[in-house]
Computed example of a mutant assay.
Amino acid sequence: MKPSSWIRGPFLPALLGSAEGFAIDPEPVLALDSFVRRLEDQRAGQQDVLAIWRWGEAIVPHGIGLPGQALASRRTLGEALATLARGFPLLQSDSSLTVDHHGDEVHVTYRVLDPRIWPRRADAELTLGLIRGICLRYGVTRDAVLDLGFEHPADRDLRALATYLGLRPRFDQPLNRIVLAARAMANPLRADLAVSAATEAEAALERGLNALRRQTPLSIQVQDLLLAHLDQGLVGQAQVAARLQMSERTLRRALAAEGRSFHDILAECRRIHAQALLARGELPLCEIALRLGYSDQSAFSRAFARWHGTAPRTLRRRTEP
């Protein structure tokens, strides 16, 4: 039985140094908030600022289960990253990993969708390290890594990381992101690495994704879409229905069958995201309003008053140390 939010894969026990708290389903499975918290504790105990990043780089494809097995069969970096993004829901729930092309650049972005799971610095470093490890399998040179951003604030001397990567990371970004030169997408797998059989791995990945879709309630799919795209203005029922490839009427009826409504799910996503952003304290209220998909700060403040009976500024003062 998996936790409601989870991460799974053969790499987990070795990474965390203990099997405590794992479910076997048939791979090791751990609650996502527990994983992030335990990894954060590991980070706090490390003198080497590169430790978590290097752990991510060292994860071999088969260590992340079905997505990794399919990834290992890909002949170019572009195919490998696309496979990772497609298969990522089998590795980790309530999270987003995307690969987007922007002219001469490719943006690989990652974040945990639940804003209440925080801090999550080590998780971001591990996952971006994993992505760079995949890039290294395809011979990506340092000059092809154009930018690196983290959603958390800088909290330690990062000269070693900047030297190691050949660029200075940026912090307090909306997403964790690696920007690669688009030309690197054609890079072939290094000659010293073997390509796995593609047909069997792809079929297993597709079976796993189909089974996950059947098991995931529609209300959770809607929630994840909203949390992933609130800051891009994806707050309309018609937009979400289109993303799910169904009509608005079908979406309403299916949610009603689960005892939920689109309006309630949207309000809950906004409420928990607002509380988390206010508790962190670094964003102005106008920016929080935009990230929640409101047209302006006053609309956000009115909604917040309905949820909590008080103004967002008041709650922020209460949570300040």
Results as ranks from 00 to 15, higher is better:
143 D>P: 02
99 V>S: 09
146 L>Y: 05
127 T>H: 13
190 R>P: 15
197 A>Q: 11
140 V>R: 01
144 A>V: 10
98 T>S: 08
200 E>D: 02
152 H>R: 07
178 I>K: 00
199 T>I: 09
150 F>K: 04
181 A>M: 02
121 R>K: 06
123 D>I: 00
179 V>M: 01
203 A>V: 13
110 Y>D: 02
128 L>Q: 06
185 M>L: 02
109 T>C: 03
200 E>N: 01
151 E>L: 00
142 R>K: 15
140 V>A: 12
182 A>C: 09
133 G>E: 10
186 A>L: 07
140 V>G: 11
102 H>A: 04
130 L>S: 04
188 P>I: 01
101 H>Y: 11
118 W>M: 03
139 G>D: 15
106 V>G: 03
133 G>A: 08
147 D>Y: 00
189 L>N: 12
105 E>P: 08
100 D>V: 13
134 I>F: 14
133 G>H: 13
166 G>A: 05
186 A>N: 12
101 H>A: 08
113 L>H: 10
106 V>P: 07
191 A>N: 06
192 D>M: 10
161 L>N: 08
104 D>I: 02
205 L>T: 12
98 T>Y: 05
159 R>T: 04
181 A>P: 02
202 E>A: 15
120 R>H: 10
165 L>W: 00
130 L>N: 06
164 Y>I: 05
189 L>Y: 08
103 G>Q: 04
133 G>Q: 10
149 G>Q: 05
182 A>I: 02
127 T>V: 15
131 I>G: 08
102 H>Y: 09
148 L>R: 01
166 G>T: 09
202 E>D: 15
132 R>V: 11
158 L>E: 14
198 A>K: 06
